[in-house]
Design a protein around this nucleic acid. Structure first.
Length: 220
DNA sequence: AAGTCTTCCAACCGCCTCAGA
DNA sequence: GTCTGAGGCGGTTGGAAGACT
């Protein structure tokens, strides 16, 4: 709480960018909380990290999204929900913030999503997080949330996305299934052992018996 | 030209996980 | 096992800029 008020907020100036850039050039990225002390920058570590990752990093691609990128995002969102960092990880040069913004401002509208999720997760309404002010601007929470509870639900084969996959198959979208299998299989597990997709769904996607998948992913 | 509205994106917030002490 | 700081994530907000009246 001590020096919290000393930190500046809001848009970054070119001079601040230059200082941050200099720091990263010399020290590399990381240890963000040292930056204010070492450089005199009036920004907290988190803000520095965000600025670097979302804007200053040479890996960040600027400009409009291509049709290929858009298509990729739509497909990945259909499969993964609002897991922006995972989605961004598969869209070269784009950050999770960019993907999230693009989805919320363009794709949501384009695809005709409303404020409701396509398929609510298996949670009682009393447990759902407080709904955002309905009259605030476009906060269309498309897709699914990503809480531990969600993960548990997914692991219990309650994955609502499965319905979408089945629907896709029903409409002769085997290409869609194939695409998901090819592009997303390695995204299906977290380092901590949580699975993004239920094993049942994975079986469905891969067309392999569960036993085989358990072996392949070294599930304990 | 001036005021108002809308869009879009950068940035913030709060919560969570993880690693090290 | 507990505490603490750093980093990561998704949801949300603020405000600049353009569109509209």
């Amino acid at each position: 709480m001590e020096a919290e008020n000393e930190y500046k907020k809001g848009l970054w100036t070119k001079e601040e960018d230059r200082v941050l850039l200099d720091y990263v050039t010399v020290h590399g990225s990381g240890r963000w909380n040292r930056i204010p002390k070492l450089t005199g920058l009036k920004r907290n570590g988190k803000s520095c990290r965000l600025r670097w990752l979302n804007y200053l990093s040479p890996n960040v691609k600027r400009g409009d999204f291509s049709e290929e990128e858009e298509d990729l995002i739509i497909r990945l969102h259909n499969l993964l929900g609002n897991r922006w960092s995972l989605i961004a990880g598969r869209v070269p040069g784009r950050t999770d913030n960019q993907v999230k913004n693009y989805w919320n401002t363009r794709l949501c509208k384009k695809l005709g999503f409303k404020k409701q999720t396509p398929k609510p997760l298996a949670s009682s309404s009393s447990e759902t997080p407080k709904a955002p002010d309905s009259n605030t601007k476009q906060s269309c929470s498309c897709g699914t949330g990503s809480t531990v509870k969600d993960m548990e639900a997914l692991q219990n084969d309650q994955n609502p996305l499965l319905d979408d996959i089945v629907a896709a198959e029903d409409s002769n979208s085997n290409e869609e299934i194939q695409w998901m299998t090819e592009h997303c299989a390695e995204s299906l597990s977290y380092s901590d052992g949580h699975n993004l997709i239920s094993w049942g769904m994975l079986e469905f996607l891969q067309g392999h018996p569960l036993e085989l998948l358990y072996q392949n992913f070294e599930l304990s």
